[in-house]
Write a protein that binds this DNA or RNA. Structure first.
Lengths: 238, 238
DNA sequence: AAATATTACTTGTATTTACAAGTAGTTTTT
DNA sequence: AAAAACTACTTGTAAATACAAGTAATATTT
């Protein structure tokens, strides 16, 4: 028995390799050590190593090529939940700030909410908040979040400034955000949205509507995100 | 020995289940047969079945829950351009038409091309074409494609009307499109783009810049896609 | 010199086996 | 009746093994 028990081995290797890629130990275009080499290096069997690499490949950190190896990609740097890339230069570990526009408050759901809600959710109401994310001091995301008000004591008094919402949910409530669905469209900026993002009313804004699942049954996290894509664009792999 | 040889078993099951979901044999929220049941039904071992389910989960057709099972998701009314399968397959049985705006021609690459090109690509030039995709007779995508002109004889004289570009590449040239990267932004419609999409000049349009990798080394497929997201939105899982 | 074959790598697919951990309904105990 | 324990399921993690298939460099043949 070698494992620490709680964290799966494949996840351990996944985290290590991801960190190495982020830190630039492996560079864009480099080949990762072969699966057999990784087996030896980390004392795992190939299926386990392959599980790690599969996860990395799924998220775009590497692409695998039969007979050749796994090629590293530098790009998917997440800023919060989204990956973005600059038009001129690549986004590294830039200066990302979060500003609270509306502090978390408990409210009923809006009447015309963007996703269908269960009865339980409707009864519980939601925690509402608005945040603005700035990259190098330019506003990029205006984020309106709705969290089902289910067993989240004292959430309205937490310190959200410059901290990830995901982080708070994980650390204080043991809630893991897993994934979800999203709709994307281009819309004209409203007066208010435009003001936050520094965009004239009516000018194009990227709008994302997301529903995220969590490890807690029935607890979902919704957000409506407006993006200023003049200088930066949303980046993704598929 | 039961397998037909060429198509992997896990892929066979993946295709079957995907078709069953698309056809509504499994409905939104249904539980798929358990992994052990699938093993028996299709004479496979559990790792193989899990490989199929993993692929389905990765593409958002199901979500897996430990101790419970795999829950089916249907893509009801949104267009899944964010998945590798391409527009034609993902939309399902809707009325999707393709109209050629500019027939394929061999050209040099534009000077300010949206992605970096290798020397080989620059020398080879590209096959250029413009297509308009209509969904239920409303124009939704205006698609400008660039394919590296590498060993694609007679491509300029192929019949592209109402056929997927991916399909032609696969059937006539044995080229499989695998995946790639994309950038998304909201931009104001130009006069020409707006005309094709039925949108006033300056109104918001979703713009995707994609680079797709293929099974052929050095052969990439680029496209610049303008989307009318007034009636439909781009849907994706993550 | 050029074409072909070999070789030593790489990842891909698949089986078999074992146990851990989460879920939900049933039974037993309190 | 309510709480606790049990049970029979589900998916998750992991090992050991085998062979297929793609890649690229080297060696051989033509």
């Amino acid at each position: 028995m070698t494992g620490p028990g709680r964290v799966p081995q494949y996840r351990r290797l996944y985290e290590i390799l991801k960190r190495h890629i982020a830190e630039g130990i492996y560079r864009e275009g480099d080949l990762l050590p072969s699966e057999n080499e990784l087996c030896q290096l980390y004392s795992m069997t190939r299926p386990t190593v392959r599980q790690s690499l599969g996860k990395l490949a799924g998220e775009g950190y590497i692409t695998k090529h039969q007979g050749k190896g796994s090629i590293v990609h530098q790009f998917p740097r997440d800023i919060g939940i989204l990956s973005i890339s600059g038009t001129t230069t690549a986004v590294g570990d830039r200066n990302l700030k979060t500003r609270i526009i509306v502090r978390p408050v408990i409210k009923p759901w809006p009447d015309d909410f963007m996703f269908a809600l269960s009865e339980l959710e409707k009864e519980s109401g939601c925690v509402y908040m608005e945040r603005l994310r700035l990259l190098d001091d330019s506003p990029i995301f205006f984020d309106i979040s709705y969290i089902t008000n289910l067993n989240l004591p004292r959430i309205t008094s937490r310190q959200f400034e410059n901290r990830s919402l995901f982080q708070i949910l994980r650390e204080h409530y043991g809630v893991e955000v897993r994934g979800g669905e999203q709709r994307i469209r281009a819309i004209p900026a409203s007066g208010r949205t435009g003001r936050f993002l520094g965009i004239a009313r009516g000018q194009p804004v990227l709008h994302l509507e997301r529903k995220m699942e969590t490890s807690v049954n029935g607890l979902f996290l919704y957000s409506s995100i407006y993006c200023n894509t003049i200088k930066y664009s949303i980046f993704g792999r598929f």
